[in-house]
């Protein structure tokens, strides 16, 4: 009777685990069948008999037979994600929602701002852009974390910085005793003072904790970016992922179906967008 059941789950096996920080881990999974997605879209990841939650893959969308998902330990389900072992089974349904329109960004100078675990979805974007780097004029990545230990993807930074057309800046809010850091110490938004991009007509992508997204958006507007070129990844409580549970509603929009990627002009007049 029903052509496709949107709740059908694809089984996947964890083949590698990378602990990126004390609270953030990347699980690398191999699904039983490929899961093609477009960067910016999210999946619902099941930990069997525990629960499921929405996560944006952190791997390139050029790869469908494997997927990286970077997850912060911050609630019930994620607690269990951090207890998984190589060989464990998880489930994936999706992908759902909107994506970054990277095919429309040919010839552009692209700015990406990723704060904390918000670097995960933006890494997927970054890697997807790198796969077609000839299409773009430049890619600037501003990464922020609270402390050096909280900064993720450290092992990849040197490689990424060697890529022509890529400018990768990092900052931490503070350096606790005993931790080493020789890059910027400031809020991520202050890194905007260190770059020189023409904001007119160029896209910027922001993902991070709500407070960072809020102030980054305001600073980007001041910098000269147009609100229709500021792409925000709004990750509300997306239980079902298909616009049926209403938990993620932002006014008339569903974060899961009309988002999670919104341009600021679309949602700026809705309530509680930063909370």
């Amino acid at each position: 009777m029903v052509a496709t059941n949107p709740y059908e789950v694809t089984s996947a096996e964890i083949f590698e685990i990378i602990d990126e920080s004390p609270t953030i881990r990347t699980i690398r999974i191999k699904p039983a069948k490929p899961i093609p997605f477009k960067t910016g879209q999210f999946i619902e990841l099941t930990v069997p008999n525990i629960g499921e939650g929405p996560f944006t893959p952190s791997s390139s969308h050029s790869i469908a037979d494997k997927m990286d998902v970077t997850i912060m330990k911050t609630g019930f389900v994620t607690e269990y994600v951090h207890k998984t072992k190589v060989g464990d089974r998880v489930g994936v349904r999706g992908p759902y929602g909107t994506y970054y329109p990277i095919d429309e960004w040919k010839g552009k100078d692209i700015l990406i701002m990723g704060g904390g675990v918000g670097m995960a979805p933006t890494r997927s974007l970054f890697l997807s852009l790198l796969d077609r780097i000839d299409n773009y004029n430049s890619i600037t990545f501003l990464a922020g974390a609270r402390t050096p230990n909280d900064m993720i993807y450290k092992q990849h930074i040197d490689g990424w910085r060697r890529i022509d057309k890529v400018n990768f800046l990092r900052s931490v809010d503070r350096v606790p005793d005993g931790e080493k850091w020789d890059e910027e110490v400031c809020l991520i938004t202050k890194l905007l003072n260190k770059i020189n991009i023409d904001p007119q007509g160029n896209p910027v992508v922001v993902c991070g904790p709500p407070i960072m997204m809020k102030f980054a958006t305001f600073d980007l507007l001041k910098y000269g970016y147009e609100d229709s070129n500021i792409y925000l990844s709004m990750e509300k409580k997306m239980y079902c992922g298909i616009g049926h549970c209403r938990h993620c509603v932002i006014g008339k929009y569903y974060a899961c179906k009309d988002g999670p990627v919104f341009t600021y002009d679309i949602i700026k007049n809705e309530e509680n967008i930063w909370e």
Binding site: Y7, N49, E52
Partner: peptide, 22 residues
Amino acid sequence: CYCIIVNDETTGAEFVKVRSQD
């Protein structure tokens, strides 16, 4: 009103998803 939560109640090989009123 039709708000729901979706829970995973998988115990065996087959995935089990249950929705409940919220």
